[in-house]
Amino acid sequence: MKTFIGFWAIYLLLFVIGLPLLIYYVSDEDMRYAPMPSAATAFFYLGLGLLLWTMVFIFFCRYFLINVFRARQRILNIITHGDPFLVKVLSKTIKASRPGYEVLSLQISFTNLRQTPVSIPYEVNDTKPDEKRFEPGQTLRMRAMPDTKNPVLILESAQVSLNKGVLLTAIIGLLLILTFAIGYLLFAYEQESMGTGWRFLRFWHPWIIIPLSALFFGGIIALVLKGINRMAGTSKELMKLVFYGKRTMGTILHYAETGVYINEQPRIKFEVQFTDERGQLHNASFQKVISLLELHQLSKGAKEVLYLPDNPKEFIFYEDLSAE
């Protein structure tokens, strides 16, 4: 995964930075060095470039630095002020052993705020494996803020620290952005101004096109990821069902492919009927991604569901809570 991300990161850098530089500097010199007729226009492009680079700097700082500190503070707030939950460990699997800790995959169960027993997978880094704190049958104290935007369960004993490697990489990235923005502007001024001040700046100059491209493609990537999360189902919606859902037996009336594929796996629409705690019958539908290897296992008939009493149209199959 790291190799995959690294490859596409380098590819995007070459596309966003290398391509505008290549196109500009292999273009006709008369077009590049002909001064702009208006000093006001040149200052406009200078201001536009400063604005675009500032937006890139803020965008990078927000997503790779500020959000890291916000996430840390959010976890600390949950540990300090969150609602307490007693959680039982049903099973434990060691996913990886690393220097100083083990990565554990747990299956845990607890009674939610609707007095419904639920079981979900939970991953934890065990820094003290010799103490055997996460053996099956053990009871853990956890906290959560179910009414927040993205509710999560956090161990009361969790130790929250920042990843120094990620933090250092983000700081270096910010310094590189700042150095390139200032350094390239000074370089271009020295090489291209020819005594005409900032009149060498044009809309297609790399100093303007590079930050504009970075914002454009960064926005596209953000929208694509947001769309994928919506189509695949977000953890926010799932955790809302975990904390407030009620279990009941339902019936699959019909299912069919939607024609949408995520990671080459088909998205299936299910028509389900179930009765809520008030005795009201509901006919509702939802969509989920099914592995190609599991398509032949689909069938109509009884299936346990987990639904929100305040909004029964929002539900999932209970077995999906245990899916990792």
Rank of each mutant, 00 (worst) to 15 (best):
T3N: 13
F4H: 13
F4K: 14
F4M: 12
G6M: 07
G6L: 07
G6A: 04
F7H: 01
F7T: 11
I10V: 14
Y11G: 09
Y11H: 09
L14K: 00
V16A: 13
P20E: 07
Y24C: 06
D28E: 11
R32D: 09
Y33S: 08
S38G: 01
A42Y: 02
F43T: 03
F44M: 10
L46M: 09
G49Y: 03
F59S: 12
F60G: 01
R62I: 09
L65K: 09
L65D: 03
F69D: 10
R72I: 01
Q73T: 06
R74C: 02
I75H: 02
I75S: 05
T80K: 15
D83C: 09
P84I: 00
L86Y: 01
V87N: 06
K88T: 11
S91V: 08
I94H: 09
S97F: 03
S97L: 06
R98Y: 09
P99F: 08
P99M: 08
E102Q: 15
Q107L: 07
N112C: 03
R114G: 00
T116N: 08
T116G: 01
T116D: 03
V118L: 05
S119P: 01
S119W: 00
P121T: 05
Y122N: 04
Y122M: 12
D126G: 08
D130C: 00
R133F: 05
R133M: 11
R133L: 15
T139Q: 14
M142C: 07
M142K: 01
R143Q: 04
M145N: 05
M145H: 00
P146V: 05
D147F: 08
T148W: 04
V152M: 10
L153Q: 09
S161N: 13
V166L: 14
A170N: 15
G173H: 04
G173C: 07
L175P: 00
T179Q: 03
G183F: 02
G183D: 05
L185Q: 07
E190V: 13
E192R: 01
G197W: 04
W204E: 11
P206Y: 11
I208D: 10
P211R: 11
P211T: 01
A214H: 10
F216T: 15
I221S: 07
K226A: 11
G227Q: 12
I228R: 14
I228M: 14
R230E: 10
K236M: 12
L238R: 15
M239T: 04
K246G: 02
T251R: 10
L253I: 07
H254M: 04
A256K: 13
E257I: 03
N263I: 03
I268T: 10
K269M: 02
F270Q: 08
F270W: 12
F274H: 06
L281S: 13
H282M: 08
N283H: 14
A284R: 11
F286H: 15
S291L: 06
L292W: 00
Q297T: 15
S299Q: 14
K300G: 13
K300D: 09
K300T: 15
K300I: 14
A302S: 10
L306R: 08
P312V: 03
F317T: 10
L321G: 11
A323H: 12
